[in-house]
């Protein structure tokens, strides 16, 4: 299992801030995890559609589609940041 976190506009459009999901495979990456989320329903397909601007962090470090995901990891999805 991995813990998924969603922040800001992404959290609102998905109606979810935190969940636990099984890994799609033993050699999962952010990319395969996102594929799994996209296949859920319209909201998820839309939020993670190609061209949509979102960022991902694995274990609180910025990551990308190729980053491996292991059991117990914390994977966070969020829009581009707007602090300061």
């Amino acid at each position: 299992m991995v813990t998924l976190l969603y922040f800001a506009g992404l959290r609102e459009s998905l109606g979810c801030s935190r969940e636990q999901v099984p890994l799609p495979s033993a050699t999962a990456t952010v990319s395969s995890l996102v594929e799994q989320l996209r296949s859920r329903d319209g909201r998820w397909t839309e939020a993670f559609a190609p061209g949509k601007s979102w960022r991902v962090a694995v274990n609180q470090r910025m990551a990308d589609l190729a980053t491996p995901v292991k059991p117990g990891d914390e994977v966070a999805f969020f829009p581009p940041v707007t602090g300061g």
């Binding site: 922040f7 506009g9 962090a57 910025m62 966070a76 829009p79 940041v81 707007t82 602090g83 300061g84």
Partner: peptide, 10 residues
């Protein structure tokens, strides 16, 4: 900070 620190304004 503006481009890398996770903060979001609504």
């Amino acid at each position: 900070l503006k481009t890398r620190a996770p903060f979001w304004k609504k």
